[in-house]
Nucleic acid binder design. Structure first.
Length: 559
DNA sequence: AGCCTTTGACCAGCG
DNA sequence: TCGCTGGTCAAAGGC
């Protein structure tokens, strides 16, 4: 854990550096393409997927149009690590490390505001204006009340239904379009407002490249109860806690969120997977600086358990899921219902895997899991609760809505641990404080995707719906602003050359939609168009890459 | 009252 | 067999 948590390194810094170097370097593709076919978990009872940030990456893309705040994102701080975390993780999990270059998204470089705000017009108004419809579709996370991204009913329809202004901004470049929220409920802009406010107060922070990558591996083949999913948040405090947070978790989340809000960063929601957990033990294990908490699903006869390690700050450092839920996820309680459109779409699409519970996207994931296609996946969902981290998830329960997840993160995808627990799904991510910064970044990110070819519109200070959010949204938990892929046969490679082409490879019988997605692909931060990362699905395991697009987006995904 | 967390004790596996 | 370790139990207490 020491490696994960460098005292001097802020989560954001870690993430930025991690993302900047590895992701930009094309490792993303290598991770999936190279490792995808050789998933260790294949045929293995347990598999793990690690999602982490390379805290050790120190290289920044100097060419990046945007510079992260040096003070905050200084990658130099982490150069001390002898070994790249990503490498360790890769070695440990068997996956390469996915990195995203966050350096590109920074505020240090003076960027002229992409949007000219007429005198007398408050940013909030802009946000609420049709131009920012994407925000309109954002509702408070069902579980956290944070700012979630709504899913478009149909990606195509979504594309076609882009608001006029949005289209104007997006032009042909816009791979991502935003759909007006169909929800009867008025959109919640509280988060956006906060973000905006924050942005106004500190624009320098707004564009910090909050990038999160979370990869999720799902072993559907091994539904054995002994299966474990490990989630380790790495750069973010708790990005990926896939599971529904236990009450304690929720409390922590609340606190964290509160903290974030206080820090002007709002959105983090982590670990809610929709299931109810009861803590039945806690122990300080050897070789772990943090106490490990043991949770079990409160559903009668449900064998699922999870182990959660949290840092003293309450950041989730590791989450391990064991077993599969033998029941549908409990109905959401206080969670605002997800957009009906989204739900309907899922249903209409016949997504067998997608839950019908409008209230919670995570429910969908759970459903998938229960359908054997997504088992343990919920575990894989990353949530995060970062006290000061970005706004998002949780890549990281590990999932904060857009705000939650995205918290500056770098993540790595790995399937195996160096140990023999090959079949365990583990996602490692470390959340560090500082999420607020991330949050700020995230808040800006949302519309950037639409503004790609309009630099003037790419201002980080303006909350933007991430392209990923628009692109994703199908089977992802509301907390995740992500791109999700539909059910993908083993061996399926998902080319992700760029945001523009960031789409699942069309598969026979599998429309290029998010239907029945067993994996998640989410990216944060600007993706290097030059890169062609791939998502590799191995042996019935859908691997999810988490990309949170923040800042300028080259293009939207192509369906 | 019910559910949850806390926490020390207990149990099982392993070397 | 013993000690270590991880995992679980269950009483106590809180909300």
């Amino acid at each position: 854990m020491k490696d994960w948590m460098l005292p001097s390194s802020s989560p954001r810094t870690l993430m930025s550096s991690f993302l900047s170097k590895e992701f930009s370097s094309g490792q993303f593709s290598s991770v999936f393409s190279d490792n995808g076919s050789n998933r260790p978990q294949d045929g293995i009872e347990k598999s793990k997927t690690f999602v982490g940030s390379s805290i050790e990456e120190t290289v920044q893309d100097t060419k990046a149009p945007l510079q992260l705040e040096s003070s905050i994102f200084s990658a130099d701080k982490r150069s001390t690590s002898p070994r790249c975390l990503a490498e360790r993780m890769a070695a440990r999990a068997g996956f390469g490390v996915l990195k995203i270059d966050t350096s590109r998204v920074s505020s240090s470089v003076p960027i002229r505001s992409p949007v000219t705000i007429p005198p007398g017009v408050s940013p909030r108004e802009l946000l609420e204006s049709p131009v920012f419809l994407p925000n309109a579709i954002v509702q408070p996370s069902p579980t956290t009340g944070k700012l979630p991204f709504l899913m478009p009913n149909n990606f195509k329809s979504m594309m076609s239904s882009v608001p006029e202004k949005a289209e104007e901004h997006s032009h042909d470049d816009l791979a991502f379009s935003f759909q007006p929220m169909l929800s009867s409920k008025p959109p919640s802009f509280s988060t956006a407002d906060k973000i905006l406010s924050n942005v106004q107060q500190n624009q320098s922070l707004t564009n910090h490249g909050q990038q999160e990558l979370s990869l999720q591996a799902n072993t559907t083949a091994t539904k054995d109860e002994t299966e474990e999913n490990l989630v380790k948040p790495s750069t973010c405090d708790s990005m990926l806690d896939n599971d529904h947070p236990s009450p304690a978790d929720e409390q922590e989340e609340s606190e964290e969120n509160h903290n974030i809000e206080d820090s002007s960063v709002a959105l983090i929601t982590p670990t809610k997977d929709g299931y109810n957990w009861r803590k039945y033990g806690q122990k300080l294990v050897k070789n772990s600086e943090y106490p490990r908490s043991y949770y079990r699903c409160t559903h009668p006869n449900c064998p699922v358990k999870k182990k959660v390690e949290r840092s003293q700050e309450g950041h989730i450092t590791e989450i391990v899921y064991k077993g599969s839920h033998n029941h549908p996820s409990p109905p959401p309680n206080h969670q605002p219902s997800a957009p009906l459109s989204y739900v309907n779409e899922l249903q209409a699409n016949g997504s067998e895997n997608c839950g019908s519970n409008p209230g919670h996207n995570t429910e969908i994931l759970r459903e998938m899991a229960s359908n054997d296609k997504f088992q343990d996946v919920h575990s894989g969902v990353l949530e995060r609760k970062l006290p000061g981290s970005l706004t998002t998830t949780e890549i990281a329960d590990t999932c904060v809505m857009e705000s939650q997840e995205a918290v500056g993160v770098s993540s790595t995808l790995s399937s195996n641990e160096k140990d023999d627990r090959a079949t365990h799904h583990t996602i490692h991510s470390t959340y560090h404080g500082d999420e607020d910064e991330t949050e700020s970044k995230r808040s800006v990110a949302p519309q950037a995707s639409n503004l790609k070819h309009r630099p003037e519109l790419a201002q980080p200070s303006i909350p933007q719906m991430s392209a990923a959010a628009a692109y994703s949204s199908r089977c992802l938990p509301p907390q995740l602003t992500t791109t999700s892929f539909g059910m993908l046969p083993p061996g399926t490679a998902i080319p992700v050359p760029s945001l523009r082409t960031f789409t699942p490879t069309p598969l026979p019988g599998h429309p290029p939609t998010m239907q029945g997605c067993t994996g998640l692909a989410v990216s944060r931060g600007e993706v290097n168009p030059e890169e062609q990362p791939r998502l590799q699905v191995a042996n019935g395991t859908a691997i999810a890459a988490y990309h949170q697009f923040i800042g300028r987006l080259p293009q939207g995904p192509q369906m």
